[in-house]
Each structure stands twice: as C-alpha cells, then as structure tokens.
Design a protein around this nucleic acid. Sequence first.
RNA 1: GGACAGGUGGGUGAGCGGUUAAAGCCAACAGACUGUAAAUCUGUCCCUCCUUGCGAGGUACGAAGGUUCGAAUCCUUCCCUGUCCA
Length: 368
Amino acid sequence: MSALRFEIQATCPETGARAGLLHTAHGVVETPVFMPVGTQGTVKGLSPRELETDLDARIILANTYHLFLRPGHERIERFGGLHRFMAWPRALLTDSGGFQVFSLDTFRKVTEEGVLFRSHLNGDEHFFSPESTVDVQLALGSDIMMTLDECLPYPTGRDAALESMNRTIRWARAGYAHYQRREKSPHCALFPIVQGSMYADLRLACAEALLELDAPGYAIGGISVGEPRDLSQEVVAVTAPALPADRPRYVMGVGMPEEIPRYIACGVDMMDCVLPTRNARNGYLFTSQGKVVIKQAQYIDDEGPLDPACHCYTCRTFSRAYLRHLFQSGEILFSSLATLHNIRHFLDLMRRARQSIIGGKFPEFLRT
RNA sequence: GGACAGGUGGGUGAGCGGUUAAAGCCAACAGACUGUAAAUCUGUCCCUCCUUGCGAGGUACGAAGGUUCGAAUCCUUCCCUGUCCA
C-alpha cells in the first residue's frame, strides 16, 4: 500500500501523452510535471516562498547522498524531517545517490552489496546499501523515494551494462523488501529505476523485472550521461511503454525545453533537470524566442524585457541591460532573478503541455 | 636641492642577457552546462597577411643613444612617478 495515488485525467489519442494528478502526503501534483532540483535542500537561488507563491511548484527534488553528508539525515530527522527543516510544505522527491555513482565516480567503489563512497567533502568513507538509502530517505521524510541504482556512463559495453543492470535490479528488490518491512502504513512511495544503458533489450528486460515489485511509480535512469540527444529519446521511447500505464513514469535528468514535449509524448509524467537552475546561474536564459545568453555584449543597451511573453517577476520588472549588468558584476541578485525566470519557463511549458492534453490538442502542441 | 625605490601588453604584476609576443591574476569577448563536487569550467585576448600552421611578417617592456652575435633584462643621458630628508 502506498500513500501515493496517481489519477489520470486525460490521455492523448494520438501519442502516449497523458495528464494526471499525483496525490501525495504533501499536496497534489499536476502532471506532466517538471521538478526543480534542490540537491542540498534548496533550489539554488530561490526561496521556498518564491517556489510556492511566484512559481507554484508542487514538487521539488533533494538528494540523499548530499544531505546524508551534510548536515546529516539524523539531524534533519530530529528537526522533524526535511520539509520542516527547509520550510517546504509541498511534495519532495529524493534521489537515492545513484546519480553520484556516475557524477562522483572517482570517489566511490561499487560492490554487490552497495556503494562505498569517499566523501568529496572530507574524504570520510560511507557505505550506501539498498537498505541504508531507504533508511536515510525515510529519515528525511521524502514523499517519493528512489531505490539505489547504478547510473552508468556513456558509452558502456553491453556485457558491463547487463551486469550492472542486474545489480540495479537486485538492489531495487532489496531496497523494496526493506522498505516494506519498515513501513507498515507508509506516508511515502518508493520508485525503482530502470537501467540498461542504451540497449533496448536490456531496458525492456530491466523494466519487466522491476514490474514484479508492483511499485506505485517507475523511473527511467541512466540517460543524460553524455550520449547524443536522439539516443536518450530513443531509449525513453522504447522503455516508457513497458512501464505500467496506470502509474507515473519519471524520466530522470531531462531535459532541454524542446526535448520535454517529446518525452511527454512517450507517456512520461515526471521529469527533473539541473539545466534551468544551473544555466540560469551561468547566464543562459530560456525564453519563448530561444536562448538568451545574457552576458553577451549585444544586450548591453537592451531596454526590453528578457522574454516579452513571460509573466515572471524578472520579465515584468527588469531590462535585459540590467540583467546583463547584474551578471557581469557578479551580483547575487542575478542568480536569483535568472533562476526564477528559467524555472518559470519550464513550469509554464509543462502547464501548457498539460492543458493541451486535457484540451485534446497535444499533437498540435508537440508540433510547435 | 638631496637620498632611495620604481616606470612591462586594457588593469595588476612576474621576468632581470638568448628557450619572451612576454607567466599568473583581473577585466573584456565567446563557448559549454541535462537524477548539481558548478555563483562552475573551457577557449580567445598587440597588428597585418595567408596555403589557418606549435605559419609568415611588423610593431612592443617611459624616451634616446650605447655594449653585445643577441637587450624588457647591462651601461649613459634625459623624462616621469612614489617615499623620505632639507
């Protein structure tokens, strides 16, 4: 039994797209949804107030590995959980640390039992097992937890991918069993993660094996690891239909605004990505007219708004010239205003996608 | 008037006879960024030319002379700046 309930409101008759409601212990999430990334218990540059009031974000991410290291999951638990600690009343999804197997590959060793991490902060060793990552996420009070997985780099040979995929399946089973032992009446959900590198048959085999867990939702991981963008979409297009149609499907780590509708068309309901937040801080802004690299000299006297079609505070209030000035000056306000806008751009994109599905116009939306 | 210290590319600042068109940093310009080791990282950054190459010329380390095969680096004079003393 899961605290998570997924309700499908509309499906696109031509594509796999669907619109739904994800009922969590911390509110309703309208899908398809883009989830801003708040690795260390904060979406960099934004306050929870902005996320809630200005942006109406319903769910954000946090990270097990990073919060385990600092400030520590037990400390957060003593505070009453991560929601209270970071003053975020809405839904939280926590990644398991599986991505750090990929991104911090020089600091870890993978074994059958789990991952031995050497802290990137101080060198201390910490062992992450399928069970311990569930425990940490329970301590954080996550609404949607992820099983520990091994996120492979690209390219990975087929044999290595098969071996790793089987380990990820064993970890998912172990994590799931532990979760069911610990949570008799859960307030949260645990999603397994499909791996298999870029091999369609491995992806399908992995999905099939994970189905027996009867999880309330499934994720597709191991993409956006350096492969060509077309390949990421092919892998998702093959994998998503193999996951239960009545459960939310989550593609981890995507994507550019032009890619997102294509994932939705595959029947994907949830996505997260660091692009809007990280690129914002680096002066790369997403607009209705394409990218605006605000640091470019061409904007030095530009009196116009960042994106005339956007209604965010940044676009309503400031000129491109001023935003460029803030970036050039290294002012902290820039990060804040830029992130506010970029997240708004992504969330608006999702809202339009959702409305088009509900209104039966998703195919047209997909073409624009 | 005297004594020291010093004048280097947009800025700062190394270099103190050849491997120096001249380190590093900053600024400027451009690029990257996809479950965040990221307010990070990479490249360009005197001028001209082309067959775009660890290419060819031309300028360049306050100024002018000089020593030397060779000078940002040594010598002379001058100009300028700073500190101190009268």
